[in-house]
Amino acid sequence: MRNAGRSGDRQTGILAAAAMAILCVGLMAPLALRAQTAAHHDTGKSVPATDEMASKSFGSKSAPITMEVFSDFECPSCRMLYEQTLRPMIQDYVASGKVYLVHRDFPLPMHKYSYEAARWADAAAKTGHYADVEQALFDNQAAWSADGSMQKYVQGGLSEADFRKVAKLMEGCELSAAGVKPASGSTAQAGHGCAMDASIEHDLALGKAIPVEATPTLRFTYKGRPYNTQGFVSWQLLKQFFDQLLTQ
């Protein structure tokens, strides 16, 4: 009987101690990470405007809400967000002057061709055709993300004359066959290379300061206050959120 009692004590102790140990390990890891990332959190200051920003944005700068979308052209959730949320939003809240939408490039290293896709989109932005190329890239994401053959889809989204202008800007921007992008800042330091990389690196640096951990990340600024969320959001819900912000 005594043995049974001791065995019960041991069982209880082991069970509870194991649970507590697992809890401690599980809690400490994310807390340590949060403490590390908290140091890099931005203070909500407004983002400096650049020429590139204006050419990759939609709507009026004086709109009460600014929405920045950190996106990767090869990411499926970014495509969903673009197709199901951003398109109706541009036609509705951006067109009516409630929201100023800014696209930010955040090509993830895990996606082989996303950096090159961002270059094509940014080249198109310089000629005033960002929206066309963005649509062409997202609409055909499944096709070009398999082999990197995005050029024909970009061409399909533009007139011949416009494509020639974009292609000229893209001279010197070809990636290796493996789709390897340059190391961050390498082209700027070398003083040559792809003209679009400065804009991409600028967006990447902004994203890392937030910090953006995945795409799509949405950053809303209203009355100087930043609100961040990550992942796909339906237009219905986003509209409710905007309406709520605008009542404050």
Binding site: A19, M20, L23, C24, L27, A29, P30, L33, A214, Q230
Partner: peptide, 22 residues
């Protein structure tokens, strides 16, 4: 907001679930 779902989040929630079951 602001907590990316990754391995560490799974570890934490797994730990909480273990504690709760215990």
């Amino acid at each position: 907001p602001g907590e990316h779902l990754g391995v560490k989040t799974l570890m934490r929630d797994g730990a909480l679930l273990s504690l709760s079951i215990a």
